[in-house]
Nucleic acid binder design. Structure first.
Lengths: 338, 338
DNA sequence: CCCGCCCTCTACAACGTTGTAACCTCACTC
DNA sequence: GAGTGAGGTTACAACGTTGTAGAGGGCGGG
């Protein structure tokens, strides 16, 4: 591997001049610049990023901590995060927490975080009770998602309450009156579950429809499997219903599967809407109406926040909050006709 | 941030002794070790990984280059790769190539590769014509997938021909005689398409069934959307068929959607089997039979190969090949009853 | 009793880069 | 024509770590 010294020798300049060329320092004579560039090309030189990182304190790496890449929402989030990062010349180290509290902690405090410039953290186990622990992290950090709304770090997420309200209203407008909230968790006061349930309630209130608490169904772990299981259980209880708001698309897809097994037709018997707008919703049978959370906006803003923190390392301003715009995506599962 | 010097000062030893403790050098008196450890804990010291990387030449980072994380196959691959990497104390930088030739090239040669210890490369655009370019990469590298079978680097993939043969045989055994091969590409001589088509032919030959070339349908880009489009087109041609081997699960899911729109029942009218065993196949309607490619074996072997290359940097042995075992997963879409 | 060896620890250099300070050379000003 | 200032370049130190070489002390064997 050639070093900056080899380039300097070949170009007959000092190593600092090579460094200046590499870093686009303006005061380099064009002729010199050219000579250095020629030497770089000739040797196929690439700067040693460990050395650069050591000297400059910046590695150009960002860590993205998500519960689970297998979940399409987070895979698609990782996708847009990587695009946004690349636009800023950053690379992304992805780590999976498995939504486990100990793992989340050991990831954000672990030795690997030493080598990244900043952290995008989609918490699922830590909560606002752990704000002290989060505040102790000195690296630039942006929180994603609804688990920690008022933490000590910048925060980006979608308008959950409004999104859920719109989703629910979407079904109410289509004449549905007994709408199951799948994923709601009346016990838990924090996180997407609580926020989306709040939106569900507001939509009912706005429409003057009373909420039957029997229709609020908890789902632990928002996967296809748990959505399916929860729906199976709910069906067994024999409670009548004609609509379903699932608090993410995976739950919706799992539940749709069970509904159809049970001989119910979607949307005729049950109109369904999900949350997240993952790609799969465009190809399921029926296609799934959902809420597009503005993922790329989330990624772009999160990276902008991180970059701001890079540039103003000790700015002691209050953590910022950004709520992205959402969009109701109407597909077959909630088509109007009854 | 405390450095090794701060720890040394506090523990009243030399920095080298601290380094020795950190690196589990055996000849350190227990009492000294304890004192150093106490200082490390007291200062909450974490080694600077850039400095370590500079000095040792190892960063503990591995790059995983895949076409697209949005594709569940690659998201699930990334999942198992990250698990296997973590077991070896490595972190993973993921990069998306978009299956674009120029991007694949610039990724494997780009400056970011300078900072990783090794590369796991799932090529989709480069081919064996580019073996020279690949051979020029000096970093440890393992190729994944079927695009480059006889390259200059170690290689891990599933038994494609046999897998596809088994999938096709699975349908033939269930009495299907006109089986569409969705994703086959009679023009292309390389890659999964060619191999899986070969397996399809072998299964027919073994069963003494002639292949109708009209049933071999090309799909450009293996997504839900392209699978759906290809099936829509195929249906328009009015060619009778009773089985479908899709060369990956996304194609299968897109096609199933179209088949059902067209009023065909699965598996009654058309038995379907896919490839990859992504999670979604367990919850689609109907659930999708598929080939489990042994993803975690792929990840584990690939990382073992990389580790071998770390340990024997200039071993000029021939590149190794590992073919993982596959498994036919029977689900509803190919259930026997007609 | 002394030599040599092993255990334990240390000082110093080196990895490849960028920041600092300073130098030299011009061109321009007065 | 000397002084000034900016452009262009350089030498050197520093970032935080690990490898090398070796020092000092204790112990066993001859």
């Amino acid at each position: 591997m050639p070093t900056i010294h080899d380039v300097a020798r070949l170009a007959e300049v000092s190593i600092k001049t090579v460094s200046n060329v590499l870093n686009d320092y303006p005061h380099v004579r064009p002729a010199t610049r050219q000579r250095v560039q020629a030497a770089i090309d000739a040797l196929d030189y690439q700067p040693n990023l460990s050395a650069r990182g050591l000297r400059s304190g910046r590695t150009g790496l960002v860590s993205l901590i998500v519960p689970d890449l297998t979940n399409a929402y987070f895979a698609e989030l990782a996708d847009v995060v990587m695009r946004a990062a690349e636009a800023q010349g950053l690379s992304v180290i992805i780590a999976q927490s498995g939504a486990d509290r100990e793992r989340e902690l050991s990831l954000i405090r672990g030795p690997r975080m030493q080598m990244v410039d900043g952290i995008l953290f989609s918490a699922l186990a830590l909560s606002e009770d752990d704000n002290d622990l989060l505040a102790a992290i000195k690296k630039p950090m942006v929180l994603l998602g609804e688990r920690i709304l008022h933490g000590p770090k910048d925060h980006v997420t979608m308008r959950n309450v409004e999104g859920s309200q719109a989703a629910t209203a979407h079904l109410l407008e289509r004449g549905r009156r007994r709408i199951v909230a799948l994923g709601g968790d009346s016990a838990q006061g924090v996180g997407s579950a609580a926020l989306r349930l709040e939106g569900y309630r507001r939509a009912h209130a706005a429409a003057g429809v009373e909420v039957d608490e029997d229709l609020v169904v908890e789902v632990v772990g928002w996967f296809r499997s748990t959505g399916a299981a929860a729906m199976r259980e709910f069906l067994a209880r024999g409670i009548p219903f004609d609509g379903l708001v699932a608090f993410n698309d995976l739950i919706a897809l799992g539940a749709m599967r069970v509904l159809q097994e049970a001989g119910l037709q979607i949307p005729r018997d049950v109109a369904v809407i999900g949350f997240d707008d993952i790609d799969e919703t465009r190809y399921s049978l029926p296609t799934l109406s959902t809420i597009d959370p503005g993922r790329s906006e989330i990624a772009e803003v999160a990276l902008r926040f991180l970059a701001d923190q890079f540039d103003h390392p000790d700015a002691a301003r209050a953590p910022r909050d950004h709520l992205t715009a959402f969009r109701v995506v109407e597909r077959e599962s909630s088509a109007s006709a009854r």
